[in-house]
Nucleic acid binder design. Structure first.
Lengths: 204, 204
DNA sequence: GTCTATACACCGATAGAC
DNA sequence: GTCTATCGGTGTATAGAC
């Protein structure tokens, strides 16, 4: 192997680990499987990382950020808040459908963090990121339609993530697209109720 | 060890495995850890089960049934459908709070089934059981209040499970009781809208 | 920095005595 | 049926040559 900076080696190993995890799950992501995917030697792994858990910790934050970006990127504002929300849910579900194993891996990683001493905070951090993304999406959706939310944004963001999580776990289990769409319509109705026309800006 | 029938041995090992999984996760449930918990020898495991996966398959159906029963058992009908639903969600969350690790294990087992060749059908089966329980709960809740659902029960059952799953994953990640309660109130409003007074029985 | 070789723990599973 | 002892494989991590 040609010489590579420590930073590049770490990144390459993490990207390789992400591919392995997305394909075969967290359990299959052994150091041997990761270096094989990265085309590196076993020793180079422990030159770049003190331990497998150290790499997993970094991987979790990287993959959470990637997930957040891919969801935000898939969004498109529509004419009404209902259509925007519905399109948002469908865009998200298309991300899930395009790589179910990867989405399952997000849950596995969260549980891995919860079960691993010293990594518990990463589980919480992962959801903090999700909530922040949800707030961002809701804020943008309301603003583009000239609306305001009549409920505190953090509450609606958690509601959105709760439903999204549930949609994902149930779909992963039975892959029922039609039933998922029906739940999405309910979710849209529920959330859209909390959006009202923005009051005219008052002079003062 | 005294002699035990094959059936009893299987049950004892499965119960031991459930305890190990609930405490430390699916990954920690090695054959050695299980027999140690059961007070048996390693060989007796493979006398009772052809393989670890054979035991895991049986365990998943057992634990899914247990989970269904413990939820149904925690229910109490109230005066209105709203109160019944809200009490139901809180009863469920109390089950989760009383043993978070066990509830996390339900997700881990589901994912284990999805990742293990030959066990995929168990993941679907697990959710079929959940949906059936949800239908049962919704039917009983409406009947006790003299109401009928204006939506197909399977759709409402899936909605209920979707929300319950999301409530669980988010609560497991950040243990935020107050935020969870707020989401529950939304869920109650959403579902209760589909219950109306039962029409009088008509003579014919 | 990168490699091969290896240490050492633990995994699932089985052989064979009792 | 139950046990101890052990096999072959794989896990994380490291030693030491280059």
């Amino acid at each position: 192997m040609t010489r590579v900076s420590a930073e590049d080696r770490r990144d390459a190993l993490i990207e390789a680990a992400i591919r392995v995890i997305a394909a075969k799950g967290v359990t299959a992501a052994t150091t041997r499987a990761i270096v094989a995917e990265a085309g590196a030697s076993l020793a180079s792994f422990h030159y770049a990382f003190r331990s497998r858990d150290e790499m997993m910790a970094e991987l979790i934050t990287v993959v959470t950020t990637q997930e957040a970006e891919s969801v935000v990127h898939a969004l498109v504002p529509a004419e009404t808040i209902e259509k925007t929300l519905e399109a948002g849910f469908h865009a998200y579900m298309n991300v899930v459908r395009s790589d179910p194993s990867r989405e399952q891996a997000m849950f596995e990683l969260n549980q891995y963090a919860m079960r691993t001493p010293g990594l518990e905070h990463l589980a919480r951090e992962q959801y903090r990121t999700y909530f922040a993304v949800a707030e961002q999406i809701l804020a943008a959706g309301a603003e583009s339609g000239g609306l305001v939310w009549t409920r505190p944004l953090p509450e609606l963001a958690r509601l959105l993530i709760t439903i999204t999580d549930g949609l994902t776990t149930t779909w992963l289990a039975d892959r029922d697209d039609a039933a998922t769409d029906a739940v999405i319509r309910d979710a849209v109705d529920l959330i859209a109720r909390y959006a009202v026309a923005s009051p005219q800006k008052e002079n003062r």
